[in-house]
Each structure stands twice: as C-alpha cells, then as structure tokens.
Write a protein that binds this DNA or RNA. Structure first.
Lengths: 145, 145
DNA sequence: TGAATAAAGTTTCTATGGAAACTATAAAGG
DNA sequence: CCTTTATAGTTTCCATAGAAACTTTATTCA
C-alpha cells in the first residue's frame, strides 16, 4: 500500500498528465478558430471582464507579460479586441472585446464545452460533486504556494 | 445552483488551469537540469521501461512522433540515453538510459517530487484518497474518448 | 525641481513543439 | 519474385512562448 508521500506525488502526476492531454486536445479546437489556447484564454478573459489591462491579465492568468503583450497585439490585429490608452496613466492599455471578438469567443467556448461534456459524459452526479470539491481544495493549496 | 452541465465544464476548466500551472512551474524545475518537461518525461519513461522504442513512447505519452524523434536525438547527444537498431526490424530504434541519464533523471525527479509535496503539504489523508479516486475516474473517462 | 527608481508594456532572441512531407525498411498480395 | 502498401522514424517549415533587454511614463525622494 502506498504511503502518503507517494500518493501526493501520484496526484500531481495525474494532474499534469490529464492537464497536458486536455491542453493539447483543446489546442486543436481553438486552432480551428485561428487561436492558440493562450490566445483564447486571453480573449475569453477580456470578454468576461469587459475592460481590463495587461498587468491584470498577467496576474490572473499567470502568463508571461511578453506573451500577453504579443497576444494582445495579435488579437487587436485580427480585430477581436480594441486597445485604448488609459487617460489617467499613459502606461496602461485598456482592452475590450469587439463584437467580432465576442462572437468568436462564444463559438469557440461552445465547441470547448461540447468537448468537455463528451469527456465527462458518464460521470455520475456524486462523482461530479466529489471531483469539484477535490479540485477546489487542490487548487487552493497549489495556488497559494 | 449550477446544473450538471455547468459543473462538468467547471471540472475541465479547473483541470486545465491547474495542469497549465503545474506544467509551467515544473518546466522551471526541469530546466535547471537542462531539459524541457517533455524531454524529462521521455527520459523518465526510458529509465522506467529499461528498453523501449519510439512508437511505444508515442503511444504511451501521447507526444507527436516528430517531437519524440527530436527529443531522442537530443537526449542521445547529451549522452543520457543509448540508441541501437533492432536486429529483427531495422526500422525500430531501441532506447535505453545511460548511467548518466538515470542519475540525472533521479535528481530531477527528486526535485519535482519535492515540489509536489510542497504543493500538497497540508492535504489530509482523507482528501488524498478522495482526490486520487476522483482523478482516476476522470482520467479513465477522458482517455477512453 | 530634477535625478533616481519603479511600473506597464514592447521588442529581440532563441529553443521548442506540431504538422506535413520525406526516407528506409517490412509486410502483404498477386 | 516483384509491386504496392504500411510502418517506424527523420527532417523541414513555421508559429509560438519564455527570458532578457529595452522604451516610455509615473512615482519617489532629496
């Protein structure tokens, strides 16, 4: 019987493995919409937040600021988001989604969600609650480090 | 109260988010040993399997064969693994770890495991069992798709 | 008031990973 | 036995992401 240390290591291994698989599969879906996973996540955040700046995106998504900058540039070039300069602080860029961006994000999100439902199709309600609870606990521990 | 569909979507989202975070943080650790995450995973698999071919690695790790090929080339160049041609089938390359490779893998694995234990330091035994069980169930559903 | 420091974001450099095309070898079939 | 098809792995192309250096703007401090 494995001890506690081995079990914790096993948990992290499974999270990495499942995460990597979902990442890669999700990437194939977002690619159909001309976006990488990270680009989609950024667009999604901008849509959800209505207006946001890059520092906030870096903080919340834990992406590299150089990459966020490049993603913002590309999304703007594709006319999915608008960039304006903050009146109070010229260093800040204020980001918001265009209608085109919101529409694309909606479609992409629907496809991703469809995939999610396929994956967990036969998960019981009991297992759902259990899983959500476990993941919340784990997430809290990991992100506070 | 969220319905079942929203909850399933939430589970996948959390898995992606946690996985991405662990991936990135793990990458910083493996980088200290001159390896990317995927390179480490391949080396680890070769050490654990003693001898293996690339097709098997591709099948088990779900990595792109072009990338596995490149990783194998690099690990060989760094003298971490040996490559030989199968006597029965010249198409097959038989991979095995060198002592240097096994040692590096051991050290890197120890660092990664240390990090894993830090993350889940205060996870109770009950939560450990629950998490392991949930992740096993989810993994089985996702990988069978 | 001006110099020093900090902050927000951009650019450059480099290695990596996925997709597609390619090569050499093995298996199948007529 | 030879041609066709399949298989295992390699190479090329290209876009991306992280790290470090850089630029512009704001804040702090003497």
């Amino acid at each position: 019987m494995k001890n506690e240390i081995d079990k914790k290591i096993m948990i992290v291994r499974k999270l990495l493995q499942i995460g990597a698989y979902l990442q890669k599969t999700g990437a194939r879906v977002t690619k159909e919409y001309g976006l990488t996973q990270q680009q989609f996540v950024v667009l999604n955040e901008i849509v959800e937040k209505k207006t946001v700046n890059q520092k906030q995106l870096v903080g919340e998504l834990l992406f590299e600021k150089s990459n966020v900058s490049k993603i913002v540039k590309k999304l703007n070039h594709s006319e999915l988001i608008d960039i304006s300069i903050s009146k109070g602080d010229a260093r800040l860029t204020i980001l918001s989604a265009t209608k085109k961006g919101a529409d694309l994000r909606r479609k992409c999100l629907d496809s991703l969600n469809e995939l999610s439902l396929e994956w967990l199709d036969s998960l019981s309600e009991y297992e759902i609650e259990k899983s959500l609870n476990s993941l919340s606990v784990i997430r809290q521990l990991i992100f506070k480090s």
